[in-house]
């Protein structure tokens, strides 16, 4: 292979470099705007009077701004937003608590403790990742039915306290990277495994716990199929299902509907704002997907 001499300048930015930089930003801005457009459209449509949602010519700014859409969505009897908000918060929080506790414990068990059958069980866990949920949902539904738990949040929350394959896998990988010296030292001091886990190891993996919590919360908030299958009474719906029911009832009220969609998204935006670092890092570190 012939070696070419590449002109190489490391000094102050040349004109061509500046142009390249501007071009990069133009590309980035263009693509970003395209991505944010549906977002923007959701929010401005939520502020439009109904007849302006599909106006011709296209109306890029709501005029007049109609805040009442939100007030109406809040107060509309068929769409008790505050109730749904509470349901979603309650549901997502409990699932998050359950997942974090169980997956941290199980992940630790797989990573740091030796016991017969460990590898076999861990292989099963990884295999579990590949099993589509569809093959288990009917018997689980029937199981909860026979327990008389349909129409409640129990079937939606309870399983999270028994862990899920994805986060167990993730936590195990995390615990494996932790130095074992601390745990060994505690062991020598006579601490039992639970104390070691709780006092020594858990604080070390705090970032992973937050990542897990943030994503569990997000996914549970998004969940539609589970509530659709298990809940029967509208007043117990979480936001995603409530919004769906609202759409089914009020097809012509687009402004209100968009307000509902915005309100359903808003709490996640707030969460994202505070936990941004963990979202982005979480995805990068663990290969998480939404």
């Amino acid at each position: 292979m012939q070696i070419n001499e590449v002109p190489y300048s490391d000094n102050s930015p040349s004109l061509s470099k500046q142009i390249a930089s501007v071009a990069r930003h133009l590309i980035l801005i263009g693509v970003t705007l395209l991505f944010l457009l549906p977002f923007y459209w959701m929010i401005i449509s939520a502020l439009k009077p109904n007849e302006m949602v599909f106006s011709d010519p296209v109306q890029w700014f709501p005029n007049p701004i109609r805040w009442e859409n939100f007030a109406e969505a809040f107060n509309y009897p068929g769409f008790p937003f505050l109730r749904f908000l509470w349901n979603s918060t309650f549901y997502s929080t409990l699932v998050t608590v359950g997942t974090v506790i169980s997956c941290a414990a199980v992940g630790y068990g797989f990573a740091s403790l030796r016991f017969p059958g460990r590898n076999f069980l861990f292989t099963l866990t990884v295999a579990n990742l590949m099993i589509p949920g569809v093959v288990t949902f009917i018997p689980i539904f029937l199981l909860f039915k026979s327990l008389g738990m349909l129409g409640s949040y129990t079937p939606l929350i309870l399983p999270s306290f028994f862990g899920n394959a994805f986060f167990i896998f993730m936590m195990r990988q995390f615990f494996l990277t932790m130095p074992s010296e601390l745990a060994d030292a505690a062991r020598v001091d006579g601490a039992n495994e639970f104390v070691i886990f709780w006092r020594v190891m858990l604080p070390l993996v705090q970032p992973a716990l937050i990542v897990m919590a943030v994503f569990t919360f997000l996914w549970t908030w998004h969940d539609f199929f589970g509530p659709l299958v298990y809940l029967n009474d509208q007043s117990s719906y979480p936001l995603s299902l409530g919004l769906f029911a609202f759409r089914n009832r009020r097809t012509t009220e687009w402004g209100l509907l968009m307000a509902g969609a915005t309100l359903t998204t808003l709490p996640l935006m707030v969460l994202f704002f505070f936990a941004q670092r963990y979202f982005i890092e979480g995805i990068k570190v663990t290969g998480l997907k939404v």
């Binding site: 129409g151 029967n232 509208q234 029911a245 009832r249």
Partner: peptide, 17 residues
């Protein structure tokens, strides 16, 4: 009560006792 397909909801409630 659910704002969805009524028959499905009714059957679900019958199934759930």
């Amino acid at each position: 009560p659910s704002g969805e397909n009524f028959n499905e909801m009714l059957m679900a409630n019958i199934a759930a006792a």
